[in-house]
Design a protein around this nucleic acid. Structure first.
Length: 661
RNA sequence: CGCGGGGUAGAGCAGCUCGGUAGCUCGUCGGGCUCAUAACCCGGAGGCCGCAGGUUCAAAUCCUGUCCCCGCAACCA
């Protein structure tokens, strides 16, 4: 049997790992565990992309050599994975010697085949993007990403004849509906190919401009440009072509986020084809994790640190949440509130409590030993049947990377088991002295719980093992609990009468809501602003008809008003925005420990110097917003009429942080 | 006509490929149970599936149009 092989992107080590990196890697880990539970050999490759201009510049900024810089950040990534319970992977670096040799070998091969040519190229180069733009792509002569004027550069470079392979890629995608999944991304790529905007790929940079890269084997004056370098990591990590690992693992599949769809869906198959290698089997594309429905970004300061969440809530609940909450392919929203909600509802109440009540009854009625079941009733058969179908659905959906749906199927079983406890009322059977019936019911419950624990191993390995351990099974986070999960679906058996089980269980303690509200108080930002939805907008027109002044907004209730957090603060620093002539940048003390940066369009009305020391009122829980590169964490209140403007402040001095109502 | 995603119960979402009684979780109201982690179980209330047309015996689902929201982008947060 061929091995299961999947990759995460090779993360660009320009920044520290965040939730998105963690998610991709966790998915790879879970898929590998899932395949191992089906008797396959499986592992994945992750790693770091360490070449390029941006890295050079970041290193310089830190006063480090590129090598020192990438060693440090790459190390952060490598240290994170074990903390998240991730296992069975190789960590590849684009600066590894083996990788460098591998890339050079492939480049030479493609060059020899005539698919790389040398050409004079002049174009608009944006240093921010590290790429050339065609006239068509520029907006008013500016880079659409950075809105900066690109430099017009004319130089000779090497090009990969990608256009030659585009028709083949298109037909391959058309013939293999699962090649790019979910389907929305497949459609996007097909649209991209039809648009005809894809050209040959520039794959080199002259050393005069960039030295931090892999030297081209056929021209030592040039280094390789990012994609040829990074994408080939997926192969080089396996070892040389034709080595044992390579033969068993390739073709494998890939896991990426939607931002790097194009290189993986178009460039990469073309490169593989040109190198005479088989193309990957699946490109699995997931969406973004949003924070408060906004994209996470370093500059907005709303980046979720996975380690912090793991420390606070433990690995497995965190993993469960990510798999349960995101529908693979779509964006999903991360919030601590939602995480706590899932922990309490799904894990503590449904699953944890099931273990707790059943094990405690087993202790009471059978001295913590699995009883010998007797004749099954109809209700028992229904559970046995549901158990099989839930597991079957779970494995099928999981294999199709529909994790949220898979878990939901499993929870159908968990909830049914809780119902079964209620409907069979073991405590009543015990009182009646109906030990035969009691034994059967308890056996059904314990055996089904074992099945649930088995299924959960890919998602929650630690908890899965604890559950199995409580059920008297041997289990280990690194080894699949059963050699072949499909056998477990086929037969309800597997738990033997007489096995000693734990007397009690507390798998997922509830996260108390006081804790949650403390979180809310500490971060007023977390509170949801009341959105004026269409139902509230509609009455507005009616009110106007009734004679309310047209410029007064529709009424809101007190609850809505309370969601606005307004405070008094003292301006301790004021300066002009370096890149925006109407904006002033303030640092204002709201008694929060550290001053808060707020931007405001006051430059026409005030000079920075005259404002320092003044007390102002501001809204603190407004969604942070970036203005010309700087983040504003709130809004200073002003009164404005026509061209008159004045700041609003308290009439007498108030302590910083005083609230306004 | 910039590109992409989306509008389904108070909140968050599934269903849409392949039309056939509108579903899940949380919340809420009422009841039950006492094995359990203030948990579990049952029941109720709450939706013109954004809007308008069209196709059809039948549309959340297919088609057309339209409005709105989000991300990317944008100097008045």
């Amino acid at each position: 049997m061929s091995d299961f092989y999947v990759t995460t992107p090779i993360y660009y080590v320009n920044a520290r790992p965040h939730l998105g990196h963690a998610y991709s890697t966790l998915v790879a880990d879970a898929l590998v565990r899932f395949h191992r539970m089906q008797g396959e050999n499986a592992f994945f490759v992750t790693g770091s992309d360490e070449h390029g201009d941006k890295i050079m510049r970041s290193a310089e900024k830190n006063g480090q050599t590129p090598r020192e810089f990438v060693d440090a950040i790459s190390g952060e990534f490598r240290r994170l994975w074990p903390e998240l319970g991730i296992d069975n992977y190789r960590f590849a670096r684009t600066t590894d010697d083996d990788h460098v040799r591998f890339v050079q070998k492939i480049l030479q091969r493609v060059y020899d085949a005539g698919d790389i040519y040398f050409a004079e190229f002049s174009g608009h180069y944006c240093y921010g993007c590290e790429r050339f733009y065609t006239e068509k792509e520029l907006e008013n002569g500016l880079c659409p990403q950075h809105l900066a004027k690109p430099e017009f550069i004319s130089e000779k470079n090497y090009f990969f004849r990608m256009s030659k392979y585009l028709p083949w890629i298109k037909s391959h995608i058309e013939e293999h509906p699962d090649f790019i999944r979910p389907e929305r991304y497949r459609s996007e790529v097909l649209a991209m190919l039809d648009a005809g905007v894809l050209e040959d790929l520039c794959i080199s940079r002259p050393k005069s401009r960039l030295t931090w890269g892999i030297e081209l084997p056929f021209d030592t004056d040039y280094v390789c440009y990012v994609w040829f370098d990074a994408l080939l990591t997926y192969l080089s990590a396996l070892g040389p072509l034709n080595c044992e690992d390579f033969k068993r693992c390739w073709p494998g599949e890939h896991l990426v986020a939607k931002d790097i769809l194009k290189p993986h869906a178009v460039f990469w198959p073309a490169i593989l084809k040109a190198a005479g290698l088989p193309v990957y089997t699946h490109l699995n594309v997931h969406g973004y994790w949003l924070s408060r429905n906004t994209k996470m970004s370093k500059s907005l300061g709303n980046v979720v640190d996975p380690l912090e969440m793991v420390k606070k809530y433990a690995i497995d609940p965190f993993r469960y949440f990510l798999f349960r909450e995101m529908h693979f392919g779509s964006d999903a929203s991360f919030s601590e509130e939602a995480l706590v909600g899932r922990i309490n509802a799904d894990l503590a109440n449904d699953l944890g409590n099931l273990f707790s009540r059943v094990l405690s009854m087993t202790a009471k009625y059978f001295s913590s030993h699995v009883p010998q079941p007797c004749k099954r009733h109809e209700a028992d058969d229904a559970i046995v049947e549901l158990c099989a179908s839930s597991m079957r659905n779970f494995t099928q959906l999981f294999g199709k990377i529909q994790f949220a749906q898979a878990l939901e199927c499993l929870w159908v079983l968990v909830r049914a088991l809780n119902k079964y406890v209620d409907s069979q009322a073991p405590w009543a059977l015990y009182k009646q002295g109906n030990m035969e019936r009691l034994a059967t019911v308890m056996y059904i419950l314990l055996a089904a719980m074992r099945k649930v624990a088995l299924c959960l191993w890919p998602v929650m390995p630690v908890t899965s093992c604890r559950m199995l351990d409580q059920l008297g099974q041997t289990a280990d986070v690194k080894t699949p609990p059963v050699p072949q999960i499909n056998d477990e679906i086929a037969s309800f058996e597997g738990l033997y009468a007489g096995t000693e089980v734990a007397a009690q269980s507390n798998l997922f303690p509830r996260v108390e809501t006081e804790g949650a509200s403390e979180v809310k108080k500490a971060k007023p930002k977390e509170q949801k602003a009341v959105k004026p939805d269409r139902k509230q907008v509609a009455p507005r027109a009616e009110k106007n008809d009734e004679g309310t002044p047209a410029d007064v907004l529709p009424e809101i209730d007190f609850e809505a008003f309370k969601t606005v957090d307004m405070r008094v603060g003292t301006i301790i620093e004021a300066s002009k925005h370096p890149d925006a002539d109407r904006i002033l940048v303030f640092r204002i003390d709201f008694g929060e420990g550290a001053p808060r940066q707020i931007l405001s369009g006051l430059a026409e009305y005030y000079t920075p110097a005259e404002l320092v020391g003044r007390q102002v009122c501001a809204v603190l829980n407004l969604k942070p917003r970036k203005i010309r590169g700087l983040v504003s964490n709130g809004m200073v209140l002003t009164a404005l009429q026509d061209d008159k403007l004045t700041l609003i402040g308290p009439c007498t001095e108030m302590p910083n942080g005083s609230s306004i109502a």
